[in-house]
Design a protein around this nucleic acid. Sequence first.
DNA 1: CAAATAACATACCGATCGTTATCGTAACGA
DNA 2: TCGTTACGATAACGATCGGTATGTTATTTG
Lengths: 206, 206
Amino acid sequence: MGRHREFDIDTALDAVTCVFWRKGYEGASYADLTAAAGVERPALYSAFGNKEAMFRKALAHYYERHLEYIPEALALPTSREVAAHILENAVDLNTRFPEHTGCMVINGVLAGSDDAEPIRQILVEARAVAEAQLRERFARAKAEGDLPETASPETLAAFLMAILHGMAVQAKAGFSRETLKAVAAHALSSWPVRASSPSAGVAAAR
Amino acid sequence: MGRHREFDIDTALDAVTCVFWRKGYEGASYADLTAAAGVERPALYSAFGNKEAMFRKALAHYYERHLEYIPEALALPTSREVAAHILENAVDLNTRFPEHTGCMVINGVLAGSDDAEPIRQILVEARAVAEAQLRERFARAKAEGDLPETASPETLAAFLMAILHGMAVQAKAGFSRETLKAVAAHALSSWPVRASSPSAGVAAAR
DNA sequence: CAAATAACATACCGATCGTTATCGTAACGA
DNA sequence: TCGTTACGATAACGATCGGTATGTTATTTG
């Protein structure tokens, strides 16, 4: 009985998911959400409950729509294929949509509202400065013969920064010092060495 | 002439830096900031300008107080020592202060206000679920002989997740697909293989 | 001492936040 | 067709946001 809902609830969920993906949880205001969904505020409340419940549903929507490659990967025969499949698809997912780059789980607390954009730019730039310093340092290392000719200073700098970002996120998630040490040691174990160097570094995990 | 400032401006800067470190930019309200600094609102405005200027000064304070290991590292003789020094100190910095874990630059846009804490917990848990899935999958791989006896499923899962987090942050910072691919390939190049396996993986960068 | 100046504390500003009451109306069952 | 029900839009709620005007107090200068 009663009147029928005039909008498609899945379409609206998809729209608000994109907003959360791009702006994070607190950064997404109801003004943004209603504009994206094309639906007024009380309609969102009746359809999803409050903002927190709406975010939970958007997150579930994200998992089944965009993270289906994780169960796929886990079913592959070797652990290396698991890792390769996940890495490949993560690269794609992180860069596929220009409107909402990165991962929604990370962005959920990494992104912010529009008026915090200048601050975000400051931090993005600070990050870039550190990476540029590493890149230059590794280019020098290559010129000095410390790194082999095949090594890429850009890739090494980006890789090291990725590990640092990952550890920072993990620390914020409550990881222990020992776990971070193991991650750092593993990252270091793949460091390229020049041919004349004594050992290849797998023993580098202290 | 006129009255003297009754609080130490550096002490206050240190206090607000800790708040920004823990709660990020938008998550830190003036109520938090004044409480931490022990100083009323107009005093912070006269000392630092508006919130954005205060954050900039806090960020500079953070760099010279806690990131001094970066120039230290860049001066070391080999690139591997550079990476090792940075990784070691980053682990320490990320876990040294229980009140504000992680890196301020990342947290600046990763943390949020107190009422968003439940949402943060949801995302932290979602992250942990994914990592647990990987850990179990890699434990199975070890049991199957796909991974060598020396491999640690915990470390491999944490390492892979760190790379994924790092790539997500980098994507949000505007990195190209190609750069992310190179990071992923480099991460994969250090993947452990069982002794009977054909190649050790440095050639894995496609 | 008196005038000037700057920092203090309080209280308030307009804007926006997430949330909801209100009300007219469209769509159902009987 | 009539009563019920739930949707849609408007507008308002209290709370909190970043930022500031104001009056008071303390200190320096003439």
